[in-house]
Write a protein that binds this DNA or RNA. Structure first.
Lengths: 335, 335
DNA sequence: TGATTGGATGAAAGCGCTTTCACAATGGCG
DNA sequence: CGCCATTGTGAAAGCGCTTTCATCCAATCA
């Protein structure tokens, strides 16, 4: 056992009852200052560490939250990876542990385990996992849950997401502001709310300027860079002035194709992406709408903790994205 | 509370004592078959889920293992990401939960928490976290631990790693077998055991063929692709026949430079990498020595569970890597 | 048939903590 | 100077489970 000194030991050493020791250690009020210090000192000297299982059993809280992701999504999926990172960081800020639950080959067992008391106090479910049926099961259970990314149907679970509509609108407006008029859209999966919102934003930006959207310039994508690369010839064949790709992976797929086929960006065609992960590929300079990953993670964690505590949580929290200019639709505009 | 039906409820419903119910549910022997079935049925009907905190407190096991990583290592670090993925998968196979511990801004608290009983039964520490002093603290504590990747100094903790020496030797031998003679090495950080072993393998392969290693062709790298890209001109200026990069990121950095400067690969120079993550970059076809991530994760998890159970674990388990031929040192050799 | 074994079961004792609850002790007030 | 809040403290009751330990009964053996 890593740890064998108990609260009783601390209590005995500091000459108080376990009850008082517990109160002192947990910062409860109603303990004289000198007593509290004595207890703290004893705990330090003994290297006392509370037994979390016992705390949990007695107190009801675990201080662990779960993060649920689809499994094959992690490797090579910059979005998912960023989410893990930011949620982990946020959890750590709140002194919460983080259980990582990837879609396993034993979903039933995973859910079963998760729903047991004493394992996690609540879960954050990433949009990349939504659709898995075991996740549905999880949502139906009476477990505090926050969705990271909107769900196509469930509106009964609080959502934290980037404001995809605005993001799509602003990004497209930026493209239009550079003078591009034939703007193509490489959309994301139809099942994804974020993809749809971005598309709506794309249309909205056009409407604002009274520019008609050429429906033949809207291409169905799947958020996958390789697929985008493979469809690139078709898209370029439509000779758009610029292309709005619904995420950076697809934008990079297009850029790769352009590079390999002597298509100049932004001279021949402008290309923009989404998510803000493109900067990780230094050879592809692409203007992008960055996800506020840090705030996404911290907001989700904070909301979940509120939910666990029983506080009210807004049904939908949309965070502002940030435009990252990297010159792939032309030089930055003067203001 | 997600869950409010207790073992007592199950016991009562099936007309047995809680003791028997517990035994039945946990597959302990000494329960008549019909009784066991009755209990199982009752548990199913009641949707009973054990309270893990209570189980843990009474039984001593958590069924959760920890995975410790350096924090900034996750995003954009394919190696770390793959490790997370494979460990998560392996944990799930064993019905273990996975706590993810990234190097936080509160290392002390993190360690403190981790070492509490009832949080995790043991931890897997990835080589990418080694060096952080809080990890040292963790290793010194009496907590079952397995290292994923060798530690430069500590030999008191069981290690699971790829056989980097052999990997380096075989990969270099392959390069030499293609007829390359002036072979450069872009090494990894000197502080890393894996990097050093690969370099040793590089030398060993040369020795076996009685080829002298030109020390001026050994370049110090840092496992970073961008840095490799920036140093590429210097390396190519030494006009090697081929370059062994100590990981794929660096190999890709070199390839990117080559591509941009009209250096043909493998015609002008051969390039190979390490880790097997290159295939994720379809535009860069690079022969690589793949880490057996799946086995790495499963072996580490299995060893940790053995350790927790009190069984003996070999101090060092080296797994065989796999050569992935992708033509970046010339066409595959006939056999 | 009586003694002996062994398997199935239940009673009860914790695991280490938090938290009522009751009780002193203290201080403010009339 | 006595009375009521207040505050600090300890005793003890669980939290829900596992696990001895003792018990019971049927099966085995002499």
């Amino acid at each position: 056992m890593p740890n064998d000194v108990t609260l009783d030991d601390v209590a005995r050493r500091s000459g108080v009852s376990p009850a008082t020791a517990s109160r002192a250690l947990n910062g409860r009020r109603g303990v004289r200052d000198d007593v509290r210090e004595r207890v703290l000192a004893a705990a330090g000297a003994l290297k006392y560490r509370p037994n979390r299982a016992a705390q949990n059993l007695a107190g009801g809280r675990t201080s662990v939250i779960g993060l649920v992701l689809g499994s094959d999504e992690l490797v090579g999926n910059a979005y998912a990876t960023s989410i893990v990172q930011s949620v982990a960081a946020a959890a750590s800020v709140h002194d919460e542990g983080l259980m990582l639950i990837l879609d396993s080959h034993k979903p039933a067992v995973a859910v079963q385990n998760l729903l047991s008391d004493g394992i996690v106090d609540g879960v954050i479910v990433s949009v990349v996992a939504i659709g898995e049926q075991w996740v549905e099961e999880l949502l139906d259970a009476n477990m505090p849950t926050v969705l990271l990314g909107a769900h196509p149907r469930r509106t009964d679970v609080p959502v934290v997401d980037v404001d995809n509509l605005t993001a799509g609108r602003v990004l497209t407006a930026e493209v239009l502001a550079h003078g591009h008029r034939r703007v193509a859209m490489l959309a994301g999966p139809k099942s994804r709310v974020d993809a749809n919102q971005r598309l709506r934003g794309f249309r909205a930006a056009h409407e604002e300027l009274n520019i008609a959207v050429d429906e033949s310039l809207i291409f169905q994508g799947d958020f996958n860079g390789q697929t985008a690369y493979e469809r690139a010839s078709e898209i370029f064949a439509a000779s758009p002035d610029a292309i709005v790709a619904c995420n950076d992976e697809m934008a990079i797929g297009l850029l790769r194709y352009a590079k390999e086929h002597g298509i100049a960006v932004p001279a021949d065609v402008g290309i923009v992406g989404f998510d803000g992960i493109a900067p990780r590929y230094p050879e592809y300079e692409v203007t992008t709408m960055a996800q506020p990953f840090d705030r996404l993670g911290s907001t989700a964690v904070k909301s979940l903790l509120d939910l666990i505590r029983g506080d009210d949580v807004p049904p939908e929290q949309l965070l502002g994205p940030q435009l990252i200019e990297r010159g792939s639709i032309g030089s930055p505009l003067e203001i």
